[in-house]
Design a binder for these strands. Sequence first.
DNA 1: GTCTATACATGGATAGAC
DNA 2: GTCTATCCATGTATAGAC
Lengths: 186, 186
Amino acid sequence: MGAQTDTRSRIQEVAITLFTEQGYEATSLREIAEALGVTKAALYYHFRTKEDIVASLIEDRIEALDELIAWAGRRPRTAETRAELIRRYGALMTKGRAHEVMHFMDRNKTALQGHAKVDLMRERMGELMQALYDPDDPLPVKLKRSMALFAMHAAWFFIRDESTTEAERAAAGLQVALELADGSGG
Amino acid sequence: MGAQTDTRSRIQEVAITLFTEQGYEATSLREIAEALGVTKAALYYHFRTKEDIVASLIEDRIEALDELIAWAGRRPRTAETRAELIRRYGALMTKGRAHEVMHFMDRNKTALQGHAKVDLMRERMGELMQALYDPDDPLPVKLKRSMALFAMHAAWFFIRDESTTEAERAAAGLQVALELADGSGG
DNA sequence: GTCTATACATGGATAGAC
DNA sequence: GTCTATCCATGTATAGAC
């Protein structure tokens, strides 16, 4: 704890910001180090690799998703389950740096491909998406429900307006997600 | 024409495939060259830089978007205009490698940031999105309409099922997009 | 139109001093 | 816990022969 923990979380904060704004590959460890006023080698004391910085940002999220998927598996695939799943997913996203992490991952899809923890996270997101529909649902239904989870992040991805609050974004995302997951036809 | 043109378009085809699957930065020119059975230097005969390959893939798209935006600007912002805009956008996407290009761009957001033509393309997509709503629309409406254009690509991004045809994807995307752009409230 | 060879820059990662 | 110095791999791009 103390100075070490503080430096560690400062590294995470600077890293996710630069990774999202400039890109994961475009951001060198030297750049992160300089932004913090330390050197490259100092980073290597706190994280063994560049990948480890990413892993540290998402590993707690994966656990939360696991629980949510397990919960969904124990319930019937009804409209109520879908709505509740979406609400719970939304609640998860209010904690920590959840939206920043999703934004970072969205903007660096290929660059993060192959990273163990990221691949796991993507897999979990896919499972969660598939918990929202049946394999024999018509394509438009599959599409709408697939987009439901995405809708909960879209207010951060699409709406650039600085004056919009986090709460407003969350509420709008939730509303649109629930609409998308509700219907059974066109 | 002839051999030169053929090689040029073969480069484009291999490039967009590798860029999408492995990532733009992760794909070296040597790799593209080897996949074609030529050398790195041969690529430089057809394209001055790596960026130029990307530019060649999207520059015709930008023109098409310009026309669509101009058309929307001449019409009142009604539900009918929105629906027609979406249909026209969908028609554009049936031509050439449109969906591949969008998929490529989606998966390489940060890596492509700063490329002149890509930035222009993104700008145009933003303008098109904003043609679907008014600045004073409530947030959920903005969000839904922003997602409409995205829906037309989502059938390619989200639905992995190989047995789904292009026509089915297009039809589903169009249907969902029209629904998202239609409503005025929650 | 395609080749070989190479210049040049950058980035991740490590060794070892303090 | 942070530093300097350095290794090593890779990638873009160019020069010039065939």
